[in-house]
Simulated scan of single mutants.
Amino acid sequence: MTVSRSLLIGLIVSAALNVFLVGGVVGVLWVRQTPPTPIEVPPVLPPAAPVAGVIAPPVQSPPQRPPQRPSLPAEVAPSGEKRPPLWTAGRGLSQESRQAMRRTLREANQRNQPIVRQARAERQAGLQAFRAKPYDPAVASQHLAAARALDGQARTNVEASLAAFATKLSAEERAALAQGLEQFYAPRTRPEQQR
Rank of each mutant, 00 (worst) to 15 (best):
G53I: 10
P67S: 09
T167F: 03
V26L: 10
L169Q: 13
R106L: 04
V54F: 09
P70D: 11
L45E: 02
A176C: 06
L127F: 09
Q124D: 10
G152F: 11
A160E: 07
L86D: 05
P46Q: 09
I115M: 06
S4M: 13
A48E: 09
V139G: 03
A74Y: 02
Q110L: 07
S141V: 06
E173L: 14
L7F: 13
L29T: 12
G27L: 09
A132G: 05
V158D: 11
E182Y: 06
G53E: 12
A125H: 01
K82H: 00
R32G: 02
H143M: 03
R91Q: 14
L86W: 01
N157I: 11
S6W: 01
I115F: 04
L127Y: 13
K82W: 08
P134E: 07
L11T: 02
P114E: 08
R98H: 06
S94D: 09
L162W: 01
L21Q: 11
L45C: 12
E192Y: 15
P58E: 04
T189N: 15
A140W: 07
A48I: 01
Q124K: 08
Q68F: 03
I9W: 09
P38M: 06
W30M: 05
P191E: 13
V44Q: 06
V44S: 04
V26F: 02
P43E: 06
P62C: 13
